[in-house]
Write a protein that binds this DNA or RNA. Structure first.
Lengths: 356, 356
DNA sequence: GTGAAAGCGCTAACAG
DNA sequence: CTGTTAGCGCTTTCAC
């Protein structure tokens, strides 16, 4: 048999099918690439589908001998339960969605990884959606997820509002940014982190500290800006604020301009690591030694920080922990648990490297 | 009604339900958060489910007036077709899997992004799996995908062999690495790219060129090594090869050792950009100016290359194009098309920046 | 043009 | 302990 190819098998089947026992016929189905169903297993094992279902799910009593017969049938048919059929019945799919702005932003891969890790361990699959922070994309993704019976989802977004989420028939947890009181979230204390960053620069002797801020309307960026401003004020210093977009080039250009206009600047707190690297490049273009002439601190703790020379001092976010905690919350929610705390706030941690 | 909250509505419903027309009852269902089904729509519109299905799928003849009634019902119930039920029947899920080694490796986010882009446009969702190149993980993910009726999948892997794939009941395309003649693939010509890289160093005047190689058994790494070796030989030079693991630290340490032992080295071709950055750091520790005393070229074209100072010269892979092409191939396969060419090989492109 | 009915593959009562 | 059966929500013949 093994030597026949697809078409031949089919032909052969047609010829002999009438003469074969039912069991043999089932076995043949496999050879032509058809997936075995629970019914095939039941027939082959000589039991009912209910019994097969029982051994599959380890539920209810099944006699040892029966179980064995079923297991053998499963093996010989290489039967795999059909997840879609199961989903349809159970209204659950063992999968969760994850909406992020852009996987290409170096902050997210680690987050995705840690989320996937805890979800996979619990038997869940991840559907990934890049939204580019465009509301319409997010909404579409959500509809899709609902119709696919995902069991819940994680989202990092600034555009999404609570009214988009609160009526949904599935659990949601927000990551990195909080959307509303009612929606569980995991984030870091950006404000405190920012103040700590500025304080570090102060301790290193900086007096004229600039801030390259993240994009307007982005929560994290606003909070870091506020932290910077407050700490600067509390020390009676003058704030220097330039816009940035959480990306390298804008930050570099704006930093360049800043350094030229304000040569007194001796410290920079960048809204994230990517922009900090931009500032480093600007400084290097102007021949300003780091940390000698200028000290720079970033925010995030992404790998880039250790790739550059000098290595970047930064306020590290516990990215993996964020993802892990968010995943755990979602799992609890999925399993019908009530959350004791529904807003988790982590601390950013000062990692002193070479740029300060 | 709108002022009642969940529990109250339910109570209210219980009380009056007997007195309501069937249509009103259907409308109420929504208020308590139940998803409308095609049956609800049919009832509300006063037609059969078959008709609703017809307007949903734009198939067969439906009278204008009927269509209108149905559409109104859909709107007023905020009905969304259930993707799972549809999948069960159609044996297709409008989703594809993507198995990658590790999203945390800066090469993959861009790839994922570009794949998602073409797939989303065609209405497909991405299931993401990080395998860590562990065969067992890959196999598990594949089983999962099959049972979820994914319509096909993309995979980048060295561990997976053709026998794991060729019998699968769904289309597969390999990315970045080719697994076998029968399995469509999209990759780049690592060998030629490597030779080109070395030639560039040669043209820049290097005579003692070392190679930091990628991990053993990884196809791409082997090919780049071979390219290096052949080009060096062809020029009658002496090869210097040190191991690396496609990661920063190993590369840095090994480069450090290499530079100390062989001060004559004046050029480095690293197996990927991450290791090239490692080499840069090593050089910087030893105070070897780049590109003055030592020239370095990487492979990949990831963003890191522009973040470091000096910016990294590299053999750029057209990552987005790889993803796009792979996605397109998969779509063709899914739609039952035959591929004219099933192995696409892209060229790596020399991007001269500051490190050479 | 439209409806009735038979599944897709699985689970969970409910009987024995 | 095991089998029968009625769906989950949708699509698709096949009649009318």
């Amino acid at each position: 048999m093994k030597l026949l190819c697809g078409k031949e098998v089919i032909y052969f089947l047609k010829c002999v099918t009438g003469y074969l026992s039912e069991k043999s016929q089932i076995l043949m189905k496999r050879l032509v690439g058809k997936m075995a169903t629970i019914r095939d297993v039941a027939k082959l094992a000589g039991v009912s589908v209910a019994t097969v279902s029982r051994v599959l799910n380890n539920r209810g009593y099944v006699h040892q001998d029966t179980r064995k017969k079923v297991e053998e049938a499963i093996l010989s048919l290489d039967y795999k339960p059909n997840a879609v059929a199961r989903s349809l019945f159970k209204k659950t799919s063992k999968s969760v969605g994850f909406i992020i702005p852009d996987i290409t932003n170096p902050f997210f891969p680690q987050l995705v990884r840690s989320v996937e890790m805890v979800m996979k361990r619990a038997g869940y699959t991840i559907l990934l959606f890049n939204s580019d922070e465009i509301l319409e994309n997010e909404l579409k993704s959500i509809d899709l997820m609902v119709s696919k019976y995902v069991d819940g989802f994680l989202v990092v977004s600034n555009t999404l509002k609570k009214e988009h989420i609160s009526e949904l028939p599935l659990p949601v947890v927000c990551l990195d940014r909080v959307i509303g009181e009612e929606i569980p979230s995991v984030s870091v204390d950006n404000y405190a982190g920012a103040r700590k960053a500025v304080r570090h620069l102060l301790e290193r002797g900086c007096r004229n500290i600039a801030h390259i801020r993240g994009p307007a309307k982005v929560r994290t960026a606003e909070e870091r800006l506020r932290g910077y401003r407050d700490e600067i004020r509390a020390n009676g210093l003058k704030p220097y604020i330039v816009p940035g977009n959480y990306d390298l080039n804008t930050a570099m250009e704006n930093a360049l301009e800043l350094f030229e206009k304000h040569p007194e600047i001796d410290g920079v707190f960048a809204g994230n690591d990517v922009m900090a690297v931009g500032a480093m490049k600007a400084a290097s273009k102007l021949g300003m030694p780091i940390p000698g002439r200028l000290k720079i601190i970033g925010f995030d703790g992404i790998e880039w920080g250790t790739a550059v020379t000098p290595e970047l001092t930064t306020m590290e976010q516990p990215i993996s922990e964020l993802g892990k905690k968010a995943g755990e919350l979602l799992l609890e929610l999925i399993n019908g648990g009530k959350l004791r705390t529904s807003h988790y706030v982590f601390e950013a941690k000062l990692i002193v490297r070479e740029s300060t």
